[in-house]
Computed example of a mutant assay.
Amino acid sequence: MKFQKIIGGLAAVSLSATTLVACGADGGGEPGEGGPIRIGSTDTNMREWDVFADLAEEEGIDIEIVDFSDYNTPNDALAQDQIDVNKFQHLQFLSEYNVGSNADLTPISATEIYPLALFWQGHDSLDGIEGEEIAIPNDSTNQGRAINVLVQAGLVTLREDGLINPTPADIDEEASDVTVTPVDAAQTAAVYQEGNPAVINNSFLERAGIDPKEAIFQDDPSNEEAEPYINVWVTTPDNADNEEIHRLAELWKDPAVEEAVLESSGGTAVPVDRSQEELQEILDRLESEAQ
Rank of each mutant, 00 (worst) to 15 (best):
W233P: 04
G209K: 05
A79C: 06
R247N: 13
N165I: 09
A79S: 13
Q89T: 14
F88C: 14
E64S: 15
V191T: 11
V257K: 09
L251E: 03
D254I: 00
V178K: 01
E132L: 10
A17W: 11
N239H: 13
V232D: 02
G27V: 14
G100S: 11
E57P: 02
G144T: 04
N86F: 15
S125P: 05
V272R: 01
N72F: 09
T106R: 04
M1W: 11
P212C: 12
E281H: 08
D184Q: 07
P221E: 08
I39Q: 01
I37Q: 03
N223Y: 06
Q193T: 05
R159Q: 15
W233A: 07
E287G: 03
R145L: 14
R274K: 15
E33W: 05
D76V: 11
V66F: 02
A290W: 05
L163I: 12
A22Y: 12
G154W: 12
A17E: 15
P166G: 05
T235E: 04
R207G: 07
K253S: 15
I282P: 02
S288A: 00
S265A: 11
R247M: 12
R38T: 09
T181I: 15
D139M: 00
V178W: 01
Q152D: 08
T235H: 01
T157V: 15
D170N: 14
D104L: 09
V156G: 10
D70L: 10
S203I: 12
V13Y: 14
G9C: 08
S69L: 07
S69R: 13
N239T: 05
A117W: 02
A215E: 00
E130Y: 07
D50N: 12
V149Y: 02
E244P: 00
L116E: 03
L126A: 08
V270W: 09
E250Y: 04
D273Q: 15
Q291G: 11
E250V: 07
E57C: 12
D170L: 06
L286W: 05
A175P: 07
A117D: 10
A17P: 11
A53V: 04
F217I: 02
D139S: 01
N239M: 05
D81N: 12
E277P: 03
T235N: 04
L78S: 04
R38K: 10
T106D: 01
G24H: 12
N242S: 11
Q280R: 13
D254R: 02
I65C: 04
E30K: 14
D124S: 12
N202R: 15
A208G: 05
A146C: 06
V85H: 02
I113G: 06
D127R: 14
E263M: 09
V199K: 01
S95Q: 03
T18N: 11
N239S: 12
E263W: 03
V178A: 06
E58W: 05
P182G: 02
A56T: 13
G34N: 08
